[in-house]
Computed example of a mutant assay.
Amino acid sequence: MLEQLTCDRHQIELSLAPIPLSAAAEFCHDDRYGAFASFVGWVRRVNVGRLVTGITYQSFQPLCRTVLAEICQEAEQVFGQELRIYVQHRLGETRVGDPTVLIGVGAVHRDEACEACRYVIEELKHRAPIWKLEHYEDGDSGWVPGNCLCQERRSRDRWLQARRE
């Protein structure tokens, strides 16, 4: 593990080690909760028509931890204080099929768990300083451009607007 930030309600990890998929459920479990939602992202075999062999992830870790903590706090503000949120992102070299990001949210009800989980992954993709160097079967490599949602589709804006209505 490279960087970890843990409080009673959030656990954020940036790690070179493989991601244990059970970690999110273990952290988020609470007898008060009736719901757990999770998201797992894997390295896919084909991206934009090119055969991928792996991805090397890099990050400015101190800023990344801060940004991820802010995202977790925002999720609580939007979806309720009674959440437990787990975020782990893999850094370094990965291969096709490796889990690279794991998000988990425990909540009293499924709506909050599912909505907060989606919020965290969308905001992570938009804001976290994590960069992807994709490696291809032909031996070439290339930096993947950021994959943020269009401004009108950004998750935070959608949820904040929905809460106002």
Rank of each mutant, 00 (worst) to 15 (best):
Q4N: 15
L5R: 11
C7T: 15
R9Y: 13
R9H: 12
I12M: 02
I12E: 01
E13W: 06
L14H: 03
S22G: 10
A23W: 06
A23N: 13
C28W: 01
H29V: 10
H29F: 09
D31A: 15
R32S: 12
R32G: 13
G34A: 07
F36S: 06
V40R: 06
V40C: 14
R44N: 06
R45M: 09
R45Q: 13
R50S: 06
R50A: 09
L51Q: 15
V52I: 12
V52E: 06
T53M: 00
T56D: 04
F60T: 08
R65W: 02
A69T: 12
A69W: 00
I71K: 04
I71R: 04
Q73T: 10
Q77K: 11
Q77M: 05
V78L: 13
Q81I: 10
Q81C: 09
E82H: 11
R84L: 04
R90Y: 02
L91W: 03
G92I: 01
G92F: 05
E93F: 05
T94K: 05
V96D: 13
G97Y: 02
G97S: 08
I103G: 04
G104W: 01
A107Q: 01
V108G: 07
H109G: 08
R110N: 12
E112K: 14
A116L: 05
Y119V: 05
V120F: 00
E123V: 01
H126C: 08
H126R: 12
P129W: 00
P129V: 00
W131I: 14
L133Q: 05
Y136K: 07
G139E: 07
G142N: 14
W143C: 09
W143Q: 08
N147Y: 01
L149Q: 04
C150S: 11
Q151H: 10
E152Q: 10
R153N: 07
R153T: 09
S155T: 02
S155F: 01
S155P: 00
R156C: 03
R156F: 01
R156D: 02
R156L: 04
D157Y: 08
W159E: 07
W159P: 02
W159T: 07
W159K: 09
Q161D: 14
A162N: 12
R163H: 12
R163F: 13
E165W: 08
